[in-house]
Nucleic acid binder design. Structure first.
Length: 488
RNA sequence: GGCCCUAUCGUCUAAUGGUUAGGACCUAUGAUUCUCAAUCAUGUAAUACGGGUUCGAUUCCCGUUGGGGCUACCA
């Protein structure tokens, strides 16, 4: 059975690139009837951010990516750990790591290192000057265990380094890139246990993935060059390494690694702006993957059905907001008004203080006005402002370019009379009645529809007049039209 | 600097040892139209470069160049 995991560090909001990894891990597990594990990698005590774990979980939940095992919200939105092989938060697993580090030390696969930061900096500087490969020079590699223990007892600060073999080549087959190989002598003696007693990523990830029976490691390409260290650790422990798949990275428009400087990188930013999870998932999944035909719209369920690692591209992909916008518009157009009202609920509440479901039916129509025009939820809610509050506008705006003020006033007055007699204010009925009138009297549509639309919306650009009139209802529509007549 | 990964329109990508190199986004033009959208039609636009292998290479190999990653007691 396939078991994948997503293992974020709680150092801030969920990065869109990491989101892509989580999505891929989730899809891969789900499509094979496997399990998806969520683990928290909080071994860097200095970069911990309060509330980051909650934020990460909230974002994943928004996207419908929830783990079968590991850390998640329960029904009361409390963070819990589920599954049998926990804990799933690394800071709660310190004794486990210590035990495996000791095993490595006792088997001569790891050693204590007492080098100061200053010495390490010096070594690096010299290597750089000599244009050599940089890395630890092995200064403490041959200190005997007895001697090391004495130094520790004497109070010296130490880290533990893994003992990389000095010859040979580490080869592995990446599911995306094929065979990759590294010369062992160029691989560093990585620190695996820090002086604060916490493991580094490299040790913790290997131990946890093994203990948690992870079969496929799907992660970003930035990990490719540390994979030989991980493979070597599996070897030292006598464990079977899992399969690796290193996904291409997301890029800025200038093709550098996607970074905060050039735009929003946190998924939360996109949630706040009113992007739909469907659109973000579809967009991000299609960065570096496609089904091989010309379909572009894929739900999470369809992705689970059709995604395959073999078709994933090798090169990084520019994170192109214009395409995201397009996806969001597509999903907005497709969505039922009812569902859209649900999604916009909080935004309506914040902006117009409309909250309870008494207004649901009305909101349904309001939302329909803009769903083909807006790009995001926030924009949609903003754009229907005129329904709740008719803004100020100049009388000149009422006059269509091919018309004049007198004619406009006359037309609106007649329109007002006609509407006053109507009981059915549906847009179909309005269109029919007004259409007949225009035809009968041979009046150009623009001569009436333009001023009517402006009178109802107060805006240069807006939805059509019939639609707006239907949403506003008879009383409010007439009030606005008569107000416009008074202006002229 | 060292090591590793990578290269098709501006962007995301499809395809094949032989094609008019396809689609989507963006963009331009036209149609529609009361405005903005939406919609429909049409157009512009790509195999980084140099060597091989081959009857033939965008595809396979090598090199160059470009881009990216790693090179921490960060992940």
């Amino acid at each position: 059975m396939i078991r994948t995991r997503f293992a974020p560090s709680p150092t801030g909001f969920l990065h869109i690139g990491n989101f892509k990894m989580a999505l891929t891990d989730f899809i891969l597990a789900k499509q094979n009837g496997g399990e998806f594990v969520l683990r928290i990698e909080d071994t860097d005590r200095e970069r911990l951010v309060d509330g980051a774990m909650e934020s990460l979980l909230r974002t994943l939940k928004w996207a419908g990516i929830e783990p079968d095992e590991g850390v998640k919200f329960d029904l009361n939105n409390k963070i819990v750990q589920i599954g049998g092989k926990g804990p799933y938060i690394q800071s709660e697993r310190l004794s486990i790591y210590r035990q495996f580090v000791n095993e490595l030390i006792n088997n001569n696969h790891a050693y204590y290192c007492f080098c100061s930061k200053e010495r390490l900096d010096e070594v690096r500087k010299i290597q750089e000057l000599n244009k050599q490969a940089s890395g630890y020079d092995g200064h403490c590699r041959n200190i005997s265990l007895e001697e090391a223990k004495k130094m520790i007892e004497a109070g010296e600060s130490a880290v533990v380094r893994m003992k990389m073999p000095k010859e040979g080549v580490t080869k592995f087959t990446d599911l995306i890139r094929g065979e990759v190989s590294f010369e062992n002598k160029l691989v560093d003696d990585q620190v695996i246990l820090k002086s604060d007693g916490f493991p580094t990523y490299h040790l913790a990830v290997v131990v946890d993935d093994h203990l948690m029976k992870i079969t496929h490691i799907v992660r970003g390409e930035e990990w490719l060059s540390s994979t030989p260290k991980h493979i070597e650790l599996y070897k030292m422990f006598g464990w079977q390494p899992p399969l690796f798949a290193h996904l291409p990275l997301l890029l800025n428009p200038d093709r550098s690694k996607l970074s905060k400087r050039q735009g929003d990188v946190a998924v939360e930013d996109y949630i706040k702006k009113g992007y739909l999870p469907e659109a973000v998932i579809n967009f991000v999944a299609f960065l570096g993957w496609n089904p091989g035909d010309e379909r572009e719209i894929f739900s999470l369920e369809e992705l689970v059905k059709e995604f395959s690692l073999e078709k994933v591209n090798k090169a990084g992909a520019v994170f192109n907001l214009e395409k995201l916008d397009w996806y969001n518009r597509e999903y907005l157009k497709k969505m039922s008004n009812e569902e859209l009202v649900k999604r916009c609920g909080v935004l309506f509440e914040e902006k117009y203080h409309i909250s309870d479901n008494k207004c649901q039916i009305a909101l349904d129509k309001v939302v329909g006005l803009e769903k083909e025009r807006a790009t995001t939820l926030v924009e949609l809610v903003e754009n229907v402002k005129f329904v709740f509050e008719l803004g100020e506008y100049e009388a000149e705006l009422l006059v269509w370019k091919k018309s004049d003020k007198a004619k406009t006033k006359e037309n609106l007055a007649k329109l007002s009379q006609i509407l006053a007699k109507l009981s059915d204010f549906s847009k179909e009925k309005l269109e029919l009645v007004i259409g007949e009138w225009l035809k009968a009297e041979n009046i150009g549509t623009g001569d009436v529809l333009w001023p009517m639309r402006v009178a109802l919306s107060g805006q240069k650009n807006s939805p059509g007049p019939y639609e707006i009139a239907e949403v506003l209802g008879k009383d409010e529509s007439l009030r606005r039209i008569n107000q416009a007549i008074a202006k002229l």
